[in-house]
Computed example of a mutant assay.
Amino acid sequence: MALSIAILASAPHAFANHDHDHHHDDGEAHAHDHDHDHDHDHNHSHDHDQGHAHDNDIYAGYFDDAQIADRALSDWEGDWQSVYPYLLDGTLDPVFAHKAEQGDKTAEEYKAYYDTGYATDVERIVIDGSSVTFFANGESMTGDYQYDGYEILNYEAGNRGVRFIFELADDASEDALPHYIQFSDHSIYPTDAGHYHLYWGDDREALLEELTHWPTYYPSSLSGEEIVDEMLAH
């Protein structure tokens, strides 16, 4: 496991990806074929519509610096599973077919694109307090992480994203654990995450430049079909 985590911390497939020609979907706030369709019920109250539009703007990466607030690791607390196995076994195929109906790629091209983005050996992550446990290849490794601020990323498409960063505690006993983990989940202030993209490695600045791979995690309690429903709903 130590070797696996060490490799993941530096290899390209451990990180995340962005395509600047996108609209709005389940990738990071500025990219990953942002092609979610948000159908609005215009019978809702004006305030509700305003709030929903406001949330959609943030999700799509349009917000003011003043709206950003520090977040605690508890926002991502829970037991999380990688979506990559569901791509490999075909469970996510309906998602790629849906994207092809609205986007500029075939379903096969979308699947290949997400195959690169989702790829990771870390099939499960458990976050409890300051403790983060990575599960890969039948083994686990745990470290304590402390908040190290956030970074705003500006994208070529004109929108932006925020990475919330946590640093491994100095007394970590496992040298192979990534020194930094960076969360992106479309939110920019404290809220419980419904899913997230995680970047990890030992070079804080280099991780901010990683725009090719984005291992993505949903609650372990969800089935593959439920994750498909979640993705199609956004």
Rank of each mutant, 00 (worst) to 15 (best):
Thr133Tyr: 01
Phe63Ile: 04
Gly161Thr: 02
Lys111Arg: 15
Tyr110His: 09
Thr116Val: 12
Asn43Gly: 13
Lys111Gln: 14
Leu198Arg: 03
Ala119Gly: 02
Asp202Glu: 05
Tyr110Asp: 09
Tyr113Arg: 11
Gly143His: 00
His40Gly: 07
Glu156Phe: 12
Ile227Ala: 10
His30Met: 12
Thr120Tyr: 04
Asp121Met: 11
Ala176Ser: 14
Thr116His: 12
Thr191Ile: 09
Lys105Gly: 08
Ala53Ile: 12
Phe96Asn: 15
Ala112Ser: 05
His42Asn: 14
Asp37Trp: 07
Ser82Ile: 08
Tyr199His: 07
Tyr113Glu: 14
Ser220Val: 04
Pro215Trp: 02
Leu3Glu: 15
Tyr84Ile: 05
Lys99Phe: 14
Asp104His: 13
Ile58Leu: 08
His46Lys: 11
Leu73Asn: 01
Gly27Gln: 03
Ala9His: 01
Glu174Gly: 03
Val228Gly: 09
Phe183Ile: 01
Ala29Thr: 08
Thr142Ala: 02
Val228Gln: 11
Ala66Thr: 09
Ser220Gln: 08
Asp93Trp: 07
Gly161Tyr: 00
His98Met: 13
Gly61His: 09
Glu225Phe: 02
His52Phe: 09
His52Val: 06
His48Met: 10
Ala53Ser: 04
Gly224Cys: 11
Tyr150Ser: 03
Ala29Phe: 05
Glu139Lys: 11
Asp70Ser: 03
Asp128Gly: 03
Asp170Phe: 03
Tyr199Arg: 03
Asp64Met: 04
Thr191Val: 12
Ser187Asp: 14
Asp170Val: 02
Glu108Lys: 15
Tyr217Gly: 05
Pro85Ile: 06
Tyr118Leu: 13
Glu209Cys: 08
Ala60Cys: 10
Asp144Gly: 10
Asp104Trp: 12
His186Met: 04
His36Trp: 07
Glu210Asp: 06
Tyr218Ser: 04
Thr116Tyr: 11
Gly194Met: 06
Ile127Ser: 01
His40Ser: 08
Gln67Phe: 01
Asn43Ile: 08
Ile181Val: 08
Ala136Phe: 05
Tyr145Gln: 00
Ile5His: 00
Glu156Val: 13
Asp202Lys: 09
Ala2Met: 11
Leu8Gln: 12
Leu153His: 07
Ser4Arg: 09
Leu92His: 07
Ser4Asp: 09
Gly103Asn: 14
Trp214Thr: 12
Glu225Leu: 03
Ile165Asp: 01
Val126Glu: 09
Met231His: 10
Pro215Phe: 03
Trp80Lys: 05
Asp25Thr: 11
Tyr196Pro: 04
His98Ala: 15
Thr191Lys: 11
Leu208Pro: 01
Gly138Cys: 01
Leu3Gln: 15
Asp104Gly: 06
Leu87Tyr: 05
Pro85Thr: 06
Asp26Asn: 14
Thr142Pro: 03
Pro178Phe: 02
Leu168His: 01
Asp79Arg: 08
Glu151Lys: 09
His234Ile: 07
His24Ala: 13
His52Arg: 11
His24Gln: 09
Val228Tyr: 12
Gly149Arg: 05
His186Ala: 05
Ala193Cys: 01
His197Asn: 05
Ser187Met: 08
His179Cys: 01
Asp25Pro: 10
Tyr180Val: 02
Leu92Arg: 07
Ser45Thr: 12
Leu73Cys: 04
Asp33Pro: 13
Asp202Gly: 12
Ala112Pro: 04
Phe134Ala: 00
